[in-house]
Amino acid sequence: MKLTSEERKNKILHEVITKGEISINQLADELGVTTETIRKDVSFLDEKNLIEKKHGLVTKVNTFFENEFSVKENTQLPEKIKVAEMALNFIPENAAILLDTSTTVLQLAKLLVMRDDLTIVTNSLQISQVLANSDNQILLTGGLYRKKSNSYVGDWAIQAIKEMNLDVAFLGCDGFSATGPTIRSYQELEIKKIMVEQSKKNIVLADSAKLKNTGLYSYVDYQNLDVVIVERNLTEVERQAFPEELFFYTN
């Protein structure tokens, strides 16, 4: 099936992020288009400062990418990218969406640089930096800066989100319990609860490794979620532990 221009650019980003470097010719072969088409796509992404052209090669350029991938963000990276790509299907045109501070949601933010019709609310400094070159409207909550997650929490951030009516919230987690997704940080707990309350639809993005973990704090029950996107089917044991009807698979 022929890819759209946006799908093709997303695929190029995927290849560059996961491989670090790839040639124009290789991209053309993999995507089944001409090198001229790939060069036009690459020029667009280069103008957005997402990738860099180097004598027939395409490489990562943004310093934020390197910092993110070098530590926690590098864990389960291919799985996170697959989840993020699937999440694109849940974003309607001209929507007001929220992106929280998770590393999987960060991968979604990188794909939204190519959109220009969205209002994007976030408490993540990293996500606001990634989206700085997009033509979407970006709203950063501000608040108490939390160094560990490079994000804003506390009353100021909470009050900002309380004033908003959001179409979709994309949320991350550290694990899952029998009642819902969980996190390890108490500082993030209250703001995540408010995000859920202020959004018409709530979608959790998680790589399947999180299914084996349980964080200390539950921020939402399964009945208040609409979708959980993971990159593979649930095992028989997992289907017994979690509400399978909520899970959407990328494979």
Score class of each variant (00 low, 15 high):
8 R>H: 03
11 K>T: 00
13 L>T: 03
18 T>H: 08
19 K>C: 01
20 G>Q: 14
22 I>W: 01
24 I>P: 01
30 E>N: 08
33 V>C: 06
36 E>K: 04
38 I>R: 02
39 R>F: 01
40 K>C: 01
41 D>A: 06
45 L>G: 03
46 D>F: 00
47 E>H: 00
49 N>D: 02
50 L>M: 07
64 F>V: 08
67 N>C: 07
67 N>D: 14
75 T>R: 04
76 Q>S: 10
77 L>Q: 11
79 E>T: 04
79 E>Y: 05
79 E>Q: 10
86 M>P: 02
86 M>N: 06
89 N>H: 09
89 N>M: 14
94 N>W: 07
97 I>C: 07
99 L>C: 09
104 T>F: 10
107 Q>N: 15
109 A>L: 04
109 A>M: 03
120 I>W: 09
123 N>P: 07
126 Q>K: 10
132 A>K: 07
134 S>T: 13
139 L>F: 15
146 R>Y: 15
149 S>E: 10
149 S>V: 10
155 D>W: 13
157 A>H: 08
158 I>V: 14
162 K>A: 09
162 K>T: 09
167 D>Q: 02
170 F>M: 06
172 G>R: 00
174 D>T: 12
178 A>C: 08
183 I>A: 04
190 E>Q: 06
196 V>N: 15
200 K>L: 05
203 I>A: 06
206 A>R: 03
206 A>T: 03
207 D>C: 03
208 S>N: 05
208 S>G: 05
220 V>A: 11
224 N>W: 02
228 V>E: 08
231 E>W: 03
236 E>I: 04
236 E>K: 12
238 E>Y: 15
239 R>V: 11
242 F>E: 03
